[in-house]
Write a protein that binds this DNA or RNA. Structure first.
Length: 493
RNA sequence: GAGCCGUUAGCUCAAUCGGUAGAGCAACUGACUCUUAAUCAGUAGGUUGCAGGUUCGAUUCCUGCACGGCUCACCA
């Protein structure tokens, strides 16, 4: 916005005038006694007679979002965090000088009000203003009152304008906060301890995404923003913390899309002496209870699609899903060569290598994942694409792992943890080999973690849930940018 | 990184075939004591994202660039 803009200049002049008159345009001594949301909730149904019986004055503060002037009276709407309320200014009550002062207020200014409640002819609960003061002068015009702000770039870059203008946006973010609060309560009630582990990692691990690189000057040491907290949380499990969880940011240096932001929030939790089966049950309880609380039942609508969360949720083995849901020829499950042929025939590029497990994972991504609309646990993943999961007792080629899919996207990933240090070392080496063959230098060998594991880790199960994606589902948001206040954008010139 | 689409007043949007860039809200002046998208009368507000090109003339056609959106790629 141009500083020479006429509208801004006008308001700057108003500010100068206020200062010259000795009026502080930014005071901080107004004491608030009520907010609009509580007032409407408590007195919304009171009659005019009952309202007259109230003796205490109401002191509210907020931003003016609409002004309707008459010759000797004015209505405004004022907005605070809890909602908006109408206020009525009358020359007869306020006096000439005070009423003239009010007339100099602009839409966008913060105002403190004192008065009592009454009901207008149309029945709207309104504050009859007895006293008022300026609490903060606004120097820039707000977006238009009727159409609001729709320019998506301004909505992201100047989210405060989005929040002022579009009520739904505030609802979504307040709900996000509430969901995270409930998740904390869920784990606290079950005896889990919330922990915080480093975001600056000397060796990135726990996932193979490309990391952001940074540098510590005093130690002259390269560091990486974490791609996952997993390996540090497991160190805590080794240290004897049997039930822990962390809700925090991870960072992945990859593309941006409606499902991906370079920094995103993940919930990870670990429970010793539990298995991936226990994790699935706990997931049903956690997510199911959230749906129930916020949607009044076990169903919600996401992007016009009805999704039923009534437990138990469908469970299907990874390989079975390729045949039953992907309608692929069962021969690909036994014959790696046929799997490669099928993938190529279907137009997949197989950039990640042609090992059987990876090819099947590629086929899964393309032919199964988009069809998993109702909550579905896919289990028994191939061992070679699950380097941190415990092998299945009956079939060591698969692991005791699941991924939860809802609305055709991955929401959670959990497994019984691999606590055999020798097997873990082998898997890391195997992973390193694969990556080296592809010429990808982004993988590092975390010897320190293996040493920790060699001290002994109890049998444990763990899980990660993508909070942003879950909030998208809960708030019917089509893009991850709708649930992150400030999604990453390129810098403006 | 690729393809497609978009960018006009503070905001939301118009502008015919290439022919003087308009409206509503917001703002300013005036009228108005129950309005709520208040109403009425008037005024002002533009480097049409940026840089080139074609043309007598470009918001409009062409090229490049910037930013954004969607799709794809990337993301076990």
């Amino acid at each position: 916005m141009d500083e020479t803009n006429e509208l801004i200049q006008q308001r700057m002049r108003k500010l100068e005038t206020l200062k010259k008159e000795g009026i502080n345009p930014y005071p901080n001594d107004f004491k608030v006694t009520h907010n609009s949301g509580d007032i409407l909730k408590i007195y919304g149904s009171w009659s005019e007679e009952e309202l007259k019986g109230l003796s205490d004055p109401f002191r509210l503060a907020g931003r003016i979002i609409a002004i309707r002037n008459f010759g000797k009276a004015s209505f405004i709407h004022m907005k605070d965090q809890t909602g908006k309320i109408q206020a009525y200014f009358q020359k007869e009550i306020l006096g000439d000088e005070s009423f003239q002062f009010f007339k100099r207020f602009d839409i966008g200014d913060f105002i403190g009000l004192e008065g009592n409640l009454f009901r207008t002819k149309t029945g709207e609960l309104t504050l009859q203003v007895k006293k008022f003061c300026l609490l903060g002068k606004s120097l820039r015009p707000l977006p238009e009152k009727w159409h609001g702000l729709t320019d998506i770039e301004i909505r992201y870059r100047q989210r405060y304008l989005d929040l002022i203008t579009n009520p739904r946006v505030k609802e979504v973010f307040l709900m996000r906060g509430l969901i995270i609060q409930r998740i904390r309560e869920f784990f606290n009630q079950r005896g889990f301890c919330e922990v915080e582990t480093p975001m600056l990692h000397p060796i990135p691990g726990g996932a193979t995404a490309k990391p952001f690189r940074t540098h510590h000057n005093a130690l002259d040491m390269d560091l990486f923003l974490r791609v996952a907290p997993e390996l540090y949380l497991k160190r805590l499990v080794i240290g004897g913390l049997e039930k822990i969880f962390e809700i925090n940011r991870s960072f992945r240096n990859e593309g941006i899309s409606t499902l991906h932001n370079p920094e995103f929030t993940m919930l990870e939790f670990y429970q010793s002496y539990a298995t991936y089966l226990d994790m699935m049950e706990m997931t049903e309880e956690l997510l199911g209870s959230l749906v129930k609380e916020f949607h009044g039942g076990f169903t919600l609508t996401y992007q016009e699609k009805r999704i039923d969360f009534t437990p138990p949720w469908r469970r299907i083995r990874f390989k079975d899903s390729l045949v039953e849901i992907g309608h692929l020829d069962p021969i690909i499950l036994k014959d790696p060569q046929k799997a490669v042929e099928t993938a190529r025939k279907l137009g997949l590029e197989l950039k990640k290598g042609t090992s059987h497990g990876r090819v099947l994972a590629d086929l899964f991504k393309e032919w199964v994942e988009p069809h998993l609309l109702e909550p579905t646990f896919v289990t028994h993943y191939p061992t070679e694409i699950s380097p941190l999961s415990r092998r299945n007792e009956e079939d060591p080629e698969v692991v005791d792992r699941f991924e939860l899919f809802i609305a055709g996207r991955e929401i959670a990933n959990g497994f019984s943890e691999l606590n055999d240090p020798l097997d873990q070392r082998e898997r890391f080496l195997q992973q390193l080999k694969e990556k080296t063959e592809e010429g990808d230098p982004s993988l590092f060998f975390d010897e320190d973690f293996l040493v920790a594991l060699e001290f002994g880790m109890p049998p444990t199960a763990g899980e990660g849930i993508g909070i942003d994606r879950w909030v998208m589902l809960m708030t019917d948001s089509p893009s991850i940018r709708d649930v992150i206040f400030f999604p990453l954008l390129r810098m403006e010139k």
